[in-house]
Design a protein around this nucleic acid. Structure first.
Lengths: 246, 246
DNA sequence: GCAAAAGTGTTCGGAGTACACCCATGT
DNA sequence: ACATGGGTGTACTCCGAACACTTTTGC
């Protein structure tokens, strides 16, 4: 019984990033408000979110989002910031929407923001009949509530994370990948161009990057060496670490 | 009227760090539970925390904590993580405490964690008659609820922050400080020993460190040059920044 | 054979690290 | 005079930045 009760003024929102070797994308849910005659009052998009059961940790509530969407259970997921301004539900469209859902449009909902990273291999997206799609992060338009702000913070967070915790890059890649694909992760997320030779000098120093006895196939150019990421080696090789300050 | 209503299942906790040129300290509040005869059932300490008014931002609620304590208004304050496990209120002492306050011991309270940094110059601590004291961060003992965990996360956060955002170091120092004092901030917070000459080579590159026409007085050794921190210069000089990854 | 991306080395400057002695002041 | 912390320079190594051509495959 208790386990189906939710905390009404707390939610989790999940900024789910995916990478298609060209752009960084985010999963958004269509939101359309219809009037009594079925005419569209407005339509926009929201981040993927969830309520929180009263006897559930925040992490568990957030985890259900990518799990429900993909059926996968070992998704990279991390809390990055909490949003609780009373104004976050005050815009006219959001007020109409809350009223139409039977929710109190005056009551502030605090939402805990999570980032999830998804390698976009062969994933099927299924989410309770609602329309969920990938959007390039720079083409999301106006989102519901304060979701543009949440997305912006998530981007900052993940950029920073990628710089000083390189393991997150591999969350966006398939288990076997080329060095060019890895370089593209950095270029796309950080929004920079990197020099191929300098990049490879760095990767050569990453002992946790394992070259496989395998090459790309079916490409109309010299096939690239494939690599895999050794998470255990990564963790041990970064034990003693001392990059100080500027 | 509305402005005095609080959100009952949301709070903010503030890990207030202070630096006394020797150790990193944290502000804790005594908590003592008495039985009907006035005998002590238990005594321990908590972080400084606050309720959140329903029409108040989380930042504002957190800001009231150091402001009430010190009367100062321009304190460094930053949200670092939210804690919402249902278990965080489940320990026996905490259950007794909640009951004695007339609060529901079953109801999970989500708390948003903030870090504040206080230069410990001439600050008077006043907080509504409760006993608030500085404790060295490695001598806090068992704290209430999950406050040991919150403190540990706050420490991680501030260490990381100090490394890649040197401006936070100056929040712990008076407006005029010596290079040795600055070095001590790094040594104490990061828990390392640094070489004086190498440290000074780094500070020499910090254009936002302004040498003053002033020296230490009243010390029984060669008086040190005093410096101040130019926040504006800091921000402009760090616009284009490219410390990548490993 | 040609289009496409893979793969490879050198030079330079700047920053990290290790390390030891003299200086200015108060007592 | 002495105790105390302030202040300084060199040698070495490693890393980041800039930069252009050959190789291997599919078509």
């Amino acid at each position: 019984m208790v386990s189906t009760m939710v905390s009404n003024n707390i939610s989790v929102d999940c900024v789910i990033f995916g990478f298609d070797f060209e752009r960084l994308n985010v999963l958004l849910v269509d939101r359309t408000l219809l009037d009594a005659d079925g005419r569209v009052i407005f339509t926009d998009r929201t981040l993927t979110g969830n309520h929180v059961f009263v006897d559930e940790t925040l992490d568990a509530a957030a985890h259900r989002i990518p799990a429900d969407l993909t059926g996968l259970d070992n998704i990279y997921l991390e809390q990055f910031r909490t949003f609780g301004s009373p104004d976050r539900i005050r815009r006219p469209n959001d007020q109409l929407w809350l009223r139409s859902c039977g929710r109190d449009p005056e009551r502030r909902v605090v939402t805990v923001g999570y980032v999830a990273l998804l390698a976009r291999r062969d994933i099927r997206l299924i989410w309770k009949g609602r329309n969920v799609k990938w959007y390039p992060v720079d083409e999301v338009g106006d989102l519901a509530f304060d979701h543009n702000q949440i997305l912006a913070e998530a981007l900052k967070y993940i950029r920073n994370k990628l710089i000083n915790e390189p393991s997150v890059g591999f969350e966006l890649l398939p288990p076997k990948f080329t060095l060019t694909q890895l370089q593209t992760v950095y270029e796309v997320i950080l929004g920079v161009r990197l020099d191929k030779r300098n990049f490879r000098k760095k990767t050569a120093r990453m002992s946790y990057l394992i070259p496989l006895d395998e090459k790309q196939t079916g490409v109309a150019h010299k096939p690239a060496q494939l690599y895999s990421f050794d998470k255990e080696l990564y963790e041990t090789s970064r034990k003693d670490f001392n990059s100080f300050f500027i």
